[in-house]
C-alpha cells in the first residue's frame, strides 16, 4: 500500500488550533527574557546609542531635501525601529539551533503542536520586545523635537509584527537546512541582511543614491515597510501604509509557506 497518494486525506490543523498553539510556543519562548530581565534592559540601550550617535551625523551628512522636509529624527527613528525588528526576527532560527543540537526540538516536534505555530510563536517572541523598545525610544525622543502619534506608531508595530512572522519563519527554515553547520546560518543571514537594509533606505535615503539603487529598492519588500513606518510615525495613514501592510502580509505568507514546507521535508 502506498502512502501519500491522493486518497490519503491528511488532517490539517484549523486556524483556532494554530492560534492556540502559537500562544503556548510564544509563552515558552517569552519565559527566557522574563526569567532574565537584564537581557531586556540591555536590548533597550542599543537602539538608543545608535539613535544618539548616528542621528546627528546623518543630519549634517545628507542634505535636508532627501528627507522630504521632515526633521532628521522624525525620518530616522522609524528606520531604527524597522532595523531592530529586522535584527530580532531574523535571529529566530539561531535560538532554534541550540534546540536542534540537543533533543529539545525533537521533543517539541513530537507534541501535537501545529508546525506553523512553532515558527510563528518563535518569531513573535523576537518581535515582542520591539513593542516596548519602540514606544520607549519614541518617548525618549520627544524632548528632541520628535512628534509622537501613539496609535499610528502602534499600528506600525503591528505591521512589523506581521512582517516579522515571515522573516522569522524564513530564519527558522534556514536553521533547519543548515543543521549541524551553524556557520552557514550566520553566513546567509548576514549576507542577506545588510544589502536588504541598505537598499531599503533604513539608514540613508536611497533617493540620494544612483538610479540602479533606486530601481533595486523597488523590488525590496523592506522598502515598502520602511516607507509605511515613516508615513505612520509622521502621523499619516495613506498609500505608503497600505503598500507596507501588503508587503508585510505577502512576506508572512511566503515565509510560512517555506517554513512549514521545510519542517515537513525534514521529517520525510
Amino acid at each position: 500500500m502506498a502512502v501519500g497518494t491522493s486518497q490519503d486525506v491528511i488532517k490539517k490543523p484549523g486556524l483556532f488550533q494554530i492560534l492556540k498553539d502559537t500562544r503556548y510556543v510564544f509563552w515558552r519562548e517569552m519565559l527566557l527574557p522574563l526569567r532574565d530581565p537584564f537581557s531586556l534592559i540591555f536590548s533597550l540601550i542599543q537602539p538608543l546609542v545608535f539613535l544618539g550617535l548616528f542621528g546627528p551625523l546623518l543630519g549634517s551628512a545628507v542634505g535636508a531635501p532627501a528627507f522630504g522636509g521632515q526633521s532628521t529624527l522624525q525620518w530616522f527613528l522609524p528606520g531604527v525601529v524597522v532595523m531592530i525588528a529586522l535584527f530580532g526576527t531574523s535571529m529566530t532560527g539561531s535560538n532554534l539551533q541550540y534546540e536542534l543540537m540537543t533533543g529539545s526540538y525533537e521533543r517539541i516536534l513530537a507534541t501535537p503542536l501545529s508546525r506553523s505555530s512553532l515558527m510563528i510563536g518563535r518569531a513573535l517572541k523576537e518581535w515582542a520586545p520591539l513593542v516596548v523598545q519602540g514606544l520607549l525610544i519614541a518617548l525618549a525622543c520627544i524632548p528632541f523635537g520628535f512628534v509622537f502619534y501613539p496609535l499610528h506608531v502602534l499600528f506600525g508595530l503591528v505591521i512589523l509584527g506581521i512582517f516579522g512572522i515571515g522573516l522569522g519563519a524564513l530564519s527558522y527554515a534556514l536553521a533547519l537546512v543548515s543543521q549541524s553547520k551553524e556557520w552557514i546560518f550566520w553566513a546567509v543571514q548576514q549576507t542577506l541582511l545588510f544589502p536588504l537594509m541598505i537598499l531599503s533606505g533604513i539608514m540613508l535615503p536611497v533617493e540620494a543614491g544612483p538610479d540602479w539603487m533606486k530601481t533595486a529598492s523597488l523590488f525590496n519588500p523592506l522598502t515598502y515597510l520602511v516607507n509605511a513606518e515613516r508615513e505612520l510615525f509622521a502621523g499619516n495613514v495613506g498609500t505608503d501604509t497600505l503598500a507596507g501592510l501588503l508587503a508585510a502580509v505577502v512576506s508572512a505568507a511566503v515565509g510560512l509557506f517555506v517554513g512549514v514546507r521545510t519542517t515537513n521535508r525534514n521529517i520525510k
Partner: peptide
C-alpha cells in the same frame, strides 16, 4: 500518515537526546 497530530496527542515520546531547552 493521515493524522500525525492525532497520533502525537495520544502518545508520549522520550527521544535519544535531552528534551529540556538549555
Amino acid at each position: 500518515v493521515s493524522d500525525p497530530a492525532g497520533v502525537r496527542a495520544r502518545i508520549g515520546y522520550i527521544g535519544q537526546g535531552n528534551g529540556g531547552g538549555h
